[in-house]
Design a protein around this nucleic acid. Structure first.
Length: 698
RNA sequence: GGGCGGUUAGCUCAGUGGUAGAGCGUUUCGUUUACACCGAAGUGGUCGGGGGUUCGAAUCCCUCACCGCCCACCA
């Protein structure tokens, strides 16, 4: 008996046994291997999302990754040489937080070296679990391509990207106000900001003008009064004419500031007057830049108030230096939140709180730590994107988005960009920025960039060519993980741009990719940043198609979350359902659509699998001894072996189904393909054809 | 505050101008030598509300409501 006939003799389908049986064969035969010798036009390149190693894979991964696998398998069936890699995004802040939690340590309490060592241990362990799950799910990856964003090759590619951008002045270092997370003590990018609701208090506080008039400002951040550099007023305010150009004195500190008119001050909200501080929010920053106001930064990297010594001196002239210094002494070293309470007390004592109203405010916070953000002035590495909005929009239009409306999220984001892309992080486990600062006489502070052949490099341990470690100050910052994952197509294709190539031949075959599959939650990060990099490096799109998948939601249509105790893990489903049933479930929902986890569909999946199995058994029972004289049905028809009208009918139906399913699949509509195939198989083939065929058989 | 998506049978979802669909559930009947089930027939919907365009609207336009997501510096 052959293996096949043995299978047929098995009455009941045992999916797991079948998987275990076939997996080694697929592996051995390299069924899913990409062949570098085959031409680009006969290939199909997928830029698989490398899952972030920051916890466990969730059911959403199973959902979306399976949807991509369907497309990959379809392209393979179309005869394409499919490049379908898998990687892990295993560095950066999310990973650090996982490590800190799992090992109960804090990065700031240990040496960088020790921390990185622990990081590697934790991610290796997590990745083993990820690998096991992906294999179990039947993902048709070419496992030879497996990469990590912290691997030597990824570090090299990522640093090469930095060097290329630096060489054309699209990457620059500058000391400027940037978004700062005081809890994780690092700069963050615009995409990592989330608005959170807080109950705050709006205070009305009087400033006085040089001629003794009182001007009430509205503020929810009185602790920033010492950082005030101007008093802003709307030009149409009834008092504007009289006040503009005059000097004002801040409350309590009595520091002299100019009164400036600007339309960004609202006449309706607050008092019509607002203090401009360095920095309370983005508008402050805009005013500071536009009116070339002085810098009075009083919030430190740890969120504590500091550096107010100049208060009352020449730089910060105060009418009442003694009172100012007293207040400074009280506030210095306090956390912004405590400082707020403290200063309100002091203001009240001085009779300077005219009103207070409870308000609900939306405050920008760090996505990862949840801490309210500060805008502080630090040296950071930025990628120039604000001047390239039009090019980025154009690239967005050159790519096919599935579904198409997801493009709007991208465009909306690009249109609303407010900051260049900050990529430096004051953290530890990440790809180092490949730069040093010279300490040599005559070139102190000069930035020294690594050369390509030195990559990957860790500036902390290796000096630039021609220098000793003593002659340079290494850059300590690492890159944000998006700075690296945004070159995933380039990591795979081993090249960045002309002159920045690791393997030019391979690059030609794999870049741009055909497909980027990803979730809609990271359009403004991964899809956006990858497009930025491809635009800046090659002035091309990074991929031709985006397949945007939805989320798997809990039964109450909300996101699964531990706090709500409504999480269903991949392991749980795998215990109760076969992989095929799970794949069937994932195939039932269109791209971009969120779905509610449904046992019903899984049951239908199992039923369908059983039906397939049994139909094969029926056919196998009767044809196992046949040695077909004709390879294809069309052949057999031509030779009049198949002559009955119902034979011809089913063959016709099959061809029509193939045509429909192929058309659907080419449009990334695997759901419609499934529907067509399912109808053909169940209704036409089983219910009609096989039932009729029984009359012939028995 | 702006944008996007959704709202279709009890449930999960298809359906983008031409007589309302699938699967599950449910009802009845039939099968039990491919099918811890399978088959046949049936039940079930004024397609979220209102208005408009059209010979004709689930589908296009306007408006409202609710749900979800994305975005937003309002002191």
């Amino acid at each position: 008996m052959t293996d096949n006939t043995k299978d047929i003799a098995e009455k009941k389908l045992d999916s797991t046994a079948q998987e275990d049986k076939w997996a080694p064969y697929w592996e051995k035969e390299g069924i899913y291997h990409w062949d570098p010798k085959i031409a680009r036009e006969d290939s199909y390149v997928i830029d698989t999302p490398p899952p972030t190693v920051s916890g466990h894979l969730h059911i959403g991964h199973v959902y979306s990754f399976t949807q991509t696998d369907l497309v990959g398998r379809f392209q393979r069936m179309m005869g394409k040489n499919v490049y379908y890699p898998i990687g892990f995004d295993d560095n950066g802040l999310p990973t650090e937080r996982l490590v800190e939690k799992e090992k109960n340590v804090r990065a700031i309490d240990m040496t960088r070296e020790d921390f990185i060592k622990i990081c590697h241990e934790v991610v290796d362990k997590s990745e083993d679990v990820f690998r096991g799950l992906f294999r179990r799910l039947g993902m048709s990856y070419d496992w030879r391509t497996e990469y990590k964003t912290i691997s030597a090759n990824a570090r090299k590619t990522s640093q090469m990207s930095a060097l290329h951008l630096y060489s054309k002045d699209d990457l620059y270092r500058s000391v400027q106000p940037s978004l700062w997370d005081p809890l994780d003590r690092t700069a963050i990018a615009q995409a990592e900001v989330v608005e959170k609701e807080f109950n705050g208090v709006m205070y009305q506080i009087p400033f006085t003008t040089e001629d003794g008039q009182e001007v009430l400002i509205g503020t929810t951040r009185p602790e920033l009064i010492p950082a005030c550099v101007a008093l802003m007023c709307h030009p149409d305010h009834p008092r504007a004419k009289d006040l503009i150009g005059k000097k004002a004195y801040t409350a309590l500190f009595e520091v002299e500031v100019p009164i400036i008119a600007d339309e960004r001050v609202s006449l309706e909200k607050g008092t019509g007057f607002v203090q401009c501080c360095t920095f309370g929010d983005l508008t402050d920053m805009e005013w500071w830049k536009e009116y070339k106001l002085p810098l009075r930064v009083i919030v430190g990297r740890d969120g504590l108030l500091r550096d107010m010594d100049g208060m009352g001196g020449q730089d910060w002239p105060s009418r009442n230096p003694e009172q100012a210094q007293k207040a400074v002494a009280e506030l210095t070293g306090q956390h912004v939140r405590k400082a707020k309470t403290k200063i309100v007390e002091m203001l009240k004592e001085a009779g300077l709180v005219r009103s207070e109203n409870n308000v609900v405010q939306m405050i920008p916070c760090a996505e990862r730590s949840g801490a309210p953000l500060e805008i502080i002035v630090t040296p950071q590495w930025m990628i120039r994107i604000l001047d390239k909005k039009e090019a980025l929009l154009q690239k967005g239009r050159e790519m096919q988005w599935h579904p198409d409306y997801m493009r709007l999220r991208y465009e909306d984001w690009v249109n609303n960009l407010k900051w260049d892309w900050g990529i430096s992080r004051q953290r530890y486990f990440g790809v180092p920025l490949p730069f040093w600062y010279s300490k040599r006489k005559g070139e102190e502070g000069k930035i020294i960039a690594a050369t390509i052949d030195e990559l990957p490099v860790d500036p902390l341990t290796t000096p630039p060519r021609g220098y000793t470690m003593d002659e340079v100050e290494p850059e300590k910052d690492v890159m944000d993980t998006w700075a690296t994952s945004s070159v995933s197509p380039q990591i795979q294709s081993q090249g960045i741009a002309d002159g920045f190539m690791i393997d030019a031949e391979r690059h030609k075959k794999l870049f741009p990719a055909d497909l980027r599959p990803q979730g809609h939650d990271i359009i403004t990060t991964w899809a956006f940043y990858t497009t930025v990099k491809a635009t800046l490096h090659q002035n091309t799109v990074p991929f031709h198609n985006l397949a945007i998948s939805g989320w798997c939601l809990a039964a109450d249509k909300t996101k699964m979350s531990k706090s709500k105790n409504n999480v269903i893990t991949p392991q749980q489903i795998l215990e109760n359902h076969s992989v095929e049933a799970i794949r069937y479930w994932a195939a039932n929902f269109k791209l971009g659509r969120d779905t509610i986890y449904s046992e019903e569909i899984l049951k239908t999946g199992r039923r369908t699998l059983t039906k397939l199995w049994n139909a094969s058994r029926l056919v196998g029972m009767h044809v196992s001894d046949l040695k077909p004289a004709h390879k294809t049905a069309a052949d057999a028809v031509a030779h009049e072996v198949i002559h009955a009208p119902f034979d011809r009918w089913i063959i016709g139906q099959m061809h029509q189904t193939i045509e429909t399913a192929t058309k659907n699949f080419l449009e990334y509509d695997y759901t419609a393909a499934l529907e067509a195939i399912e109808k053909f198989f169940w209704k036409d083939y089983c219910d009609n054809y096989l039932e009729l065929a029984k009359g012939r058989l028995y």
